[in-house]
Design a protein around this nucleic acid. Sequence first.
DNA 1: CGCCTAATTAGATATCCTTCTAATTAGAGT
DNA 2: ACTCTAATTAGAAGGATATCTAATTAGGCG
Lengths: 89, 89
Amino acid sequence: MTINAIFEALSHPVRRDILKMLRAGPLSAGDLARNFDLTKPTLSVHFAKLREAELVSVERQGTSLIYHLNMSILEEALSGFLAFKEPKP
Amino acid sequence: MTINAIFEALSHPVRRDILKMLRAGPLSAGDLARNFDLTKPTLSVHFAKLREAELVSVERQGTSLIYHLNMSILEEALSGFLAFKEPKP
DNA sequence: CGCCTAATTAGATATCCTTCTAATTAGAGT
DNA sequence: ACTCTAATTAGAAGGATATCTAATTAGGCG
């Protein structure tokens, strides 16, 4: 997890929308994908970037992958940058 | 000014570093540029993106352009996104 | 096992981003 | 007007990103 990966992940509107949806609670990849006018593979790539930044975590439930928002990472990164603090050593 | 332009602007480490430097007070384009291992035209492009997002404002002083941090825009955008609020209508 | 659904990975293409050098604009001073 | 310094804009090259279709992995169930 780097501050770089986090801001990189936040730079795309689709990925920010994904985070907003997850705010209400965990959702499967398919349920998330249904909300966009993009193919599932495209969404998978966006999920991967969010995972890389550790802004979301995944849990398997049968054949589905359930995505959870990692609010603490998001909060630390954004409020940390607002205060111009360095990331935790 | 759009939330999109703001997160786009924040996505590059050089631009985030520029904002950090401006935290301490206004600086000229040249003074900012001296801190990076990049040419001045390259920095100019980064400045332009920050202006576009209205994260900085510019004021001319003789032949120099002085950049100021627009803290309120940054704060509203980041804390707004953290709270998952919509941007001001 | 064979098949169906859910999702990701691979490969290809088009677009966007970053960076450079060269050219241009703008102000100050002689 | 000329020249010097400060900075931006233009144009081009290279690398990275987003998106699609096709192929692959993984789990559940008859």
